[in-house]
């Protein structure tokens, strides 16, 4: 849709443009926000985050180049809003904001992907997990990896767009994607083991930790 120059009131024109170009992306923002909120029952918190993002987008809509796709722009705005909220919530007793980057690049006790050899038929096994399982596993990933997966694998941004949104180099995004997917599989491996979905090469179910003790 194009917003018409015949809109007599600037606020009406802005509103029309918002509903034509931004609002169709609101469900995408909502899905991303739900995947960010740790713990179940956080829909209201996700809605607040998306609403704040959409209101910022409404105010800044003139900065969005006419005809450009707003997805990357909105996801960048969602992330900044999320960080602002996170910093406010995690504010230290001395009043200084906590540093999000200090939790963004964690060190690992184990190498991600250590259970990968158990995934003999990954597509079939992954299809058995419901959306909530995937979200739960995503929520357990470190922030930097979760965002890379959300932007590129879920919301189909290019590596370059994600790099711009997250203010890192494209190579960093590629690395985070690879490691993030491996970490996600490790989480899901645990769920699959609990449910008896994994089979060893001799056809027996693999119990949690039985092959990797």
């Amino acid at each position: 849709m194009k917003y018409s120059p015949t809109d007599s009131h600037p606020e009406d024109a802005r509103r029309n443009r918002f509903y034509a170009e931004i609002w169709p992306e609101a469900a995408m923002l909502m899905r991303t926000a739900i995947s960010l909120m740790p713990g179940p029952g956080k829909t209201a918190e996700a809605e607040d985050l998306v609403q704040e993002t959409l209101l910022k987008a409404f105010k800044a809509i003139d900065q969005l180049e006419p005809g450009s796709h707003p997805r990357a722009w909105l996801l960048t705005m969602l992330r900044r809003t999320w960080i602002d909220r996170w910093r406010l919530r995690e504010r230290r007793p001395d009043g200084r904001a906590a540093d999000l980057d200090s939790v963004a690049e964690p060190t690992f006790e184990t190498q991600p992907g250590e259970y990968d050899e158990d995934w003999t038929d990954p597509e079939s096994l992954l299809s058995r997990f419901g959306d909530q399982d995937i979200i739960k596993a995503l929520q357990l990933l470190p922030e930097a990896y979760r965002w890379a997966l959300l932007l590129v694998d879920v919301q189909a941004l290019s590596v370059e767009e994600a790099a711009q949104a997250l203010d890192v180099a494209p190579g960093t995004i590629k690395s985070r994607l690879h490691r993030g997917r491996a970490m996600l599989r490790d989480q899901l491996h645990g769920y699959a083991s609990e449910r008896g979905w994994l089979k060893s090469n001799d056809g027996h179910a693999i119990a949690e930790g039985s092959t990797h003790g």
Partner: peptide, 22 residues
């Protein structure tokens, strides 16, 4: 493995969400 993981994550983009309150 990476392609399968990416494919499963991509399906989250069509997860139904209730937009009525928002």
């Amino acid at each position: 493995l990476d392609q399968a993981t990416q494919g499963r994550l991509a399906k989250l983009a069509t997860m139904p969400v209730d937009m009525s309150r928002l």
